[in-house]
């Protein structure tokens, strides 16, 4: 029988190299995809997800087993990505990320897309625009949407990852969905 993630993590805490390698193989795809969904840069996503594994290696002993390993590990990945976004915003105020925390108001200022949503190509573009709108959400709202839609985490798990209450996650999701609905309406109008 395959060892559970939690059992592997306990072995990593005892410096078991094979257990670490196995956890990396299990989670490399998810860690990279999650990081990429938040930072949207393949190089950064690679570095950040690798850094998450290094943190896992260093702090496996602090995994208490109260939550699932995946939730605990996602928290490491998401925190690294949010920190990364904050740092980039600090020294790149002129970049697109400067609007990260402006949420809806920024979305409302977006120019109308030029493609026709009726045909398939247009539809593809619409979906791209929709995810581009997700990228422009405030970092924690974006993380909540990605964790829910892409990683299919339940609200209480998202709360554990983001270290906040379930009520706060619901508010993040509500605000994010409102912003995205407005984007969709704008796309339908054109």
């Amino acid at each position: 029988m395959e060892p559970s993630d939690e059992a592997l993590c306990q072995r990593v805490a005892k410096r078991d190299v094979a257990a670490f390698e196995l956890l990396v193989e299990r989670y490399q795809g998810r860690a990279y995809r999650l990081a990429w969904s938040i930072v949207r840069d393949p190089e950064d996503a690679r570095d950040l997800s690798q850094e998450a594994f290094i943190r896992l290696h260093e702090s496996a002993g602090s995994f208490g087993g109260r939550s699932k390993f995946s939730t605990w590990f996602y928290r490491i990945v998401v925190n690294l990505c949010l920190d990364h976004k904050r740092k980039r915003r600090w020294w790149k105020p002129w970049a697109g990320d400067a609007a990260d925390d402006q949420g809806e108001s920024f979305l409302e200022r977006q120019p109308a897309p030029v493609t026709d949503p009726v045909d398939e190509l247009g539809r593809e573009q619409t979906m791209k625009d929709l995810w581009a709108a997700v990228d422009r959400l405030a970092p924690r709202q974006r993380a909540a949407v990605v964790l829910q839609v892409q990683e299919e985490l339940a609200t209480y798990e998202i709360a554990e990852v983001l270290k906040c209450s379930e009520a706060t996650v619901r508010v993040h999701l509500h605000r994010a969905m409102n912003a995205l609905k407005k984007t969709m309406k704008n796309m339908e109008k054109r």
Binding site: I54, K128, M177
Partner: peptide
């Protein structure tokens, strides 16, 4: 909201492909 969640789920973008062997080698070096 139901429609929006459906659209989002159906259109999840995949990140650029990664050479996982190289990824793990880099990780070991780091």
């Amino acid at each position: 909201l139901r429609e929006l969640l459906g659209e989002l789920s159906r259109s999840i973008a995949e990140p650029p492909a990664v050479n996982w062997a190289r990824y793990r080698a880099e990780l070991r070096e780091k």
